[in-house]
Design a protein around this nucleic acid. Structure first.
Length: 429
DNA sequence: ATAGGGTTAG
């Protein structure tokens, strides 16, 4: 089958890549060159990191020896620089010297450690606060949220009882974290039970609570049920915001009710709101999914005229749908247009193009394209790699796939659950 | 200092 893209277009778009095309193992060359830009947190705990600079000298906040570093300041700096392991070290130095830990910094630190997937250390910070400082509900919410995000419900519940034992009761944010987590895992029924608990606990739901439930309900129970929740929150005097309305719009679009979605969007000004770029993106996606390109174009024009300019996601949607319809030339063209407008394509933007090259049986071009994105400051994520790995396996190039697979950890992109999937693919051969 | 939104693979 002939490729649907013109090979002349590539050199114009990717001069750097095509120039290097003839060198073998091009992918790795780019990888090595670009890896230097990957920000890498210093994990150093060496004493020379704990130097006192003049501006780090003692202030009035914490009494300490003037020959000793100001650990509070160092802690704050490390947190700001997202060096959380280092920050934990300074926190430990602080409390070892009898200084009281700062609760706000510790909350940040907990979030940061969870983002490094280090729940254990995050819990250690909570313990330090309990022992040497004064934890508050923000701290416990951060820990509960961290556990919920990695689906450790039991640990989250333990923290919940722990905070209660210490005299803190769950607030609406605590409830929203738990409700949101359940909804994300498709357990709307349980989420609604927790919602009942919230009400019995004479805790007042907020617009966020209802928005979470509306989103999940639109997905599971349909838009009709979701609209009932919208009515309920209005009856309670809660004012929906664009998060809420966009959840409704998305629900309508997902159910194929595009006309109703448009009608709803047109009614927003009367409700004191106006559609934002997300509302438009949802509508655009729905139109293009039905192949309504003319209407899509009109909508994009409206975005410009309504002072709601297309953003990276808008372009990603257009590029994705063009690729789906086999219009690779136009996709590549659009990629250039968005870059000219100063928008930075991300992994979502590039993936449909990678996918399109793969569909043409050109995993070689897909790899080159990946080099191109790396050199444009966008590191491929696991989805991008899986796109290529999958194509390689399908084309019977399992060895090539395995080689690339082996490179993932050093690319700063360790394989996900797709590892199992890869082995499943392998058994086909 | 904490909670909710749009677009990628299989």
């Amino acid at each position: 089958m002939a490729t649907t893209f013109s090979s002349e277009l590539l050199p114009q778009l990717f001069p750097y890549v095509t120039q290097a095309k003839l060198t073998s193992n091009c992918h790795n060359i780019f990888v090595v060159r670009c890896r230097g830009h990957i920000p890498n947190e210093s994990k150093s705990r060496s004493p020379q990191k704990v130097m006192v600079s003049t501006e780090a000298r003692s202030t009035q906040l914490q009494p300490h020896d003037s020959t000793e570093p100001n650990f509070l300041k160092l802690l704050s700096r490390s947190c700001k620089a997202a060096k959380y392991n280092e920050a934990l070290y300074f926190l430990e130095c602080m409390v070892n010297r009898g200084l009281k830990p700062d609760v706000i910094l510790c909350t940040k630190l907990i979030k940061g450690l969870f983002s490094l997937k280090n729940a254990e250390k995050a819990v250690r910070v909570m313990h330090i606060l309990e022992q040497y400082g004064e934890p508050d509900v923000f701290v416990y919410n951060a820990v509960i949220s961290g556990f919920c995000k990695v689906n450790k419900t039991n640990s989250a519940n333990e923290v919940l009882s722990r905070m209660r034992v210490r005299g803190f009761s769950a607030d609406v944010v605590t409830y929203n974290i738990m409700i949101g987590s359940l909804c994300n895992r498709g357990k709307l029924g349980l989420a609604l039970k927790v919602f009942d608990q919230l009400l019995q606990d004479n805790c007042k739901p907020t617009v966020v609570t209802y928005t979470i439930l509306i989103e999940a309900t639109a997905l599971e129970g349909g838009i009709h049920e979701a609209m009932k929740l919208l009515d309920e929150m209005l009856r309670k005097g809660l004012q929906p915001d664009m998060y809420t309305y966009n959840a409704i719009i998305r629900g309508m679009c997902r159910g194929g009710l595009i006309d109703q979605a448009f009608h709803f969007v047109r009614s927003l000004p009367a409700k004191g709101c106006k559609p934002d770029v997300i509302s438009y993106n949802v509508l655009l996606r729905a139109l293009l999914n039905q192949g309504k390109w003319k209407d899509g174009e009109k909508l994009v024009a409206e975005m410009f005229s309504r002072d709601c300019e297309p953003n990276v996601v808008t372009y990603s949607i257009l590029i994705s749908c063009l690729c789906r319809d086999g219009k690779l030339d136009e996709s590549l063209n659009l990629l250039r247009v968005m870059k000219d407008k100063g928008l930075n394509p991300d992994t979502y933007t590039y993936d449909p193009l990678i996918s399109a090259f793969c569909r043409e049986g050109r995993t070689d071009l897909a790899l080159e394209f990946m080099d191109y994105m790396i050199c444009n400051g966008c590191l491929p994520d696991i989805v991008n790699y899986n796109t290529i790995l999958s194509a390689m396996c399908k084309n019977g190039n399992a060895n090539q796939a395995l080689e690339l697979f082996g490179d993932l950890p050093q690319m700063g992109c360790p394989p996900d659950g797709g590892k199992l999937w890869l082995w499943r693919q392998q058994t086909l051969f």
